[in-house]
């Protein structure tokens, strides 16, 4: 192939002329018509339910009222954004979002990696399968049930207070107490995801060439040395991809879980941008204002993924796109 190409150039034969665009289109259409027809429902789905809402974001520049509709509501420019930045609650929801996602990230991210390393070292096949099966279970339990189990365990006469009272701890309904919100959120997150998220690391671990370990053993490397010199470097690309994905999701903190967990007593520490959008928009019907707040969230999320992706491409050569 390569020879053919260079040969052509040297003899100065007619260079392959680009077809005009319209010609390309019509050839593609005759060839792939039926595929495009097949694709119509998919295209419509994305246009209506994904691009529709993106266009709908324009209401954040309007004074949208359901009575006048999208096309007849008056335009107000950046008013709602200005309102949000000077809103009494802006700092609260912004910093809560950052705080909750930051703590969730640093505490939950390493856990599945550690679990995968431990499972990988288990000698008994049956035992290792059992540990996997058990740790995956919470991933399949709905958030409603997870939160209600949490409520049951942490209420005033629940098992956790029972246990802590052995150490002279005064029983409290933990979900009504500001100081327990974040720990409960993070711990339940670990409980839900540690097993499921370890799958990907486990399969990356099994893909490591066992000859590497043999060679290291012959050279006299101990377990720790093997971990640092072989296992972790081999896991690094997976870890980085997962980290990018997590950082990208930072502004989409689990608002469904927060809505179930929080109450007016804990709003001060639990209210995040997405829950604020939900209350302002769907409960108080401030459509345009909440759309503006939501847009702020979406744009920051997007920039965050874009930025981490670029950074990781530069530093390690791993990236999503």
């Amino acid at each position: 192939m390569k020879y053919h190409h260079t040969g052509r150039r040297q003899t100065g034969m007619v260079p392959c002329r680009e077809l005009p665009l319209s010609e390309k289109f019509s050839r593609d259409w005759t060839k792939n018509k039926s595929l495009y027809f097949l694709f119509i429902p998919v295209l419509f789905y994305y246009l209506i339910f994904h691009y529709g809402p993106m266009v709908g974001l324009l209401i954040s520049f309007q004074n949208y009222k359901p009575s006048t509709g999208f096309f007849h509501s008056s335009w107000v420019g950046l008013k709602h954004f200005k309102d949000f930045f000077t809103d009494f609650y802006f700092q609260r929801v912004f910093f809560n979002t950052l705080k909750i996602s930051f703590f969730t990230l640093i505490f939950t991210f390493p856990m599945p990696i550690i679990l995968a390393l431990l499972i990988n070292e288990l000698r008994g096949k049956l035992y290792s399968r059992m540990v996997q099966t058990i740790t995956y279970i919470p991933h399949f339990i709905s958030i409603v049930v997870v939160v209600s189990i949490m409520m049951d365990l942490t209420c005033k006469d629940g098992a956790i207070n029972q246990f802590l009272s052995l150490f002279d701890f005064k029983p409290v309904t933990m979900l009504n107490d500001k100081q327990y919100f974040l720990p409960l959120y993070v711990i339940s997150n670990i409980w839900q995801n540690i097993g499921w998220n370890s799958i990907i690391y486990l399969s990356a671990l099994t893909a490591i060439d066992s000859e590497l370990y043999e060679a290291a053993k012959i050279d006299g490397a101990g377990k720790l040395r093997q971990l640092l010199a072989i296992t972790l470097p081999c896991l690094l690309p997976t870890i980085i991809i997962m980290l990018i994905l997590q950082v990208g999701k930072m502004f989409n903190v689990g608002y469904e879980k927060i809505i179930l967990m929080y109450n007016p007593l804990t709003y001060e520490v639990a209210d995040v941008i997405s829950t604020y959008v939900y209350r302002k928009g769907l409960l108080e019907m401030s459509w345009s204002y909440s759309a503006a707040v939501g847009m702020f969230n979406s744009v920051i999320s997007f920039l965050l993924v874009w930025f981490t992706n670029r950074l990781s491409k530069k530093v390690s050569g791993n990236s999503l796109w």
Partner: peptide, 20 residues
């Protein structure tokens, strides 16, 4: 399609779309 993974309209515009 991949773009929609990284940028979404959000809850409120989705609600209005579904309503529309």
């Amino acid at each position: 399609i991949v773009f929609t993974m990284y940028f979404q309209g959000g809850t409120i515009p989705l609600y209005l779309t579904v309503q529309a």
